[in-house]
Simulated assay, not measured.
Amino acid sequence: MHGSKREDDEHSTPEPDLRSKAWPRMLFSLALFGVLVGLMIGRLTAPTEHRLERVEVVQDGLNLWFNAQPRLHGEHVEGTVALLFEAKGMAQRGQLDLSGKPVSWRVQQSDKGLLLTVVAARPLHGQWTAAEDAGGWRVQLKLRE
């Protein structure tokens, strides 16, 4: 068996494969189609992302507007008021007057969501309520010394 020429139907090189090459292409196309349909269904059924739309300074507090109801956790920490929202938004800061004295607030992104911190030179106490209002969610924070 020297070379690849045929001698009595015996040779050293295999015969060309006569099977169609369309079968692997069809399987790949079906797999790709399945992935794309799965991504579309996942996008349609994904929960809405909670976003902070704006912060309003009102008398003796703040109004925070969200596109949907976020999960909220609030605490009083050493004279400050801290609210943690499971939402996304832009970092913001500002000041408001409480009984003629300045109070600073800051919204910042943390690893668990948005963190609102309200700080003053004296201990603060806050009360927060959330309600649906005008097609969105409003979290109202009322402050007192």
Rank of each mutant, 00 (worst) to 15 (best):
M1L: 02
G3Q: 11
S4N: 11
S4V: 07
R6S: 06
E7M: 05
D9K: 01
H11C: 12
S12T: 13
P14G: 15
P14D: 13
P14E: 13
E15C: 09
D17I: 01
L18F: 11
R19Y: 11
R25Y: 15
F28A: 08
F28S: 01
A31R: 05
L32V: 13
L36S: 14
G38R: 06
G38N: 09
L39N: 11
L39Q: 03
G42W: 15
L44P: 00
T45D: 04
P47Y: 08
H50F: 04
L52R: 02
V55N: 07
V58M: 10
V58C: 06
L64G: 03
W65P: 02
A68P: 01
Q69R: 13
R71E: 14
L72D: 14
G74T: 02
G79N: 09
V81I: 02
L84Y: 09
F85E: 01
F85G: 03
F85A: 00
E86T: 01
A87H: 00
A87M: 04
M90R: 07
M90H: 09
A91M: 10
R93P: 05
R93K: 13
R93G: 13
R93E: 14
Q95Y: 10
L98E: 04
V103M: 05
Q108C: 10
Q109S: 08
D111P: 07
L114Q: 00
L114M: 00
L116G: 02
L116E: 08
T117I: 04
A120P: 08
A120N: 11
R122H: 14
P123Y: 08
L124D: 00
L124I: 10
H125M: 12
G126Q: 11
W128C: 00
W128S: 02
T129D: 06
A131H: 12
D133V: 08
A134K: 14
A134L: 06
A134P: 01
A134I: 13
L141Q: 01
L143M: 05
R144P: 00
R144K: 13
E145C: 02
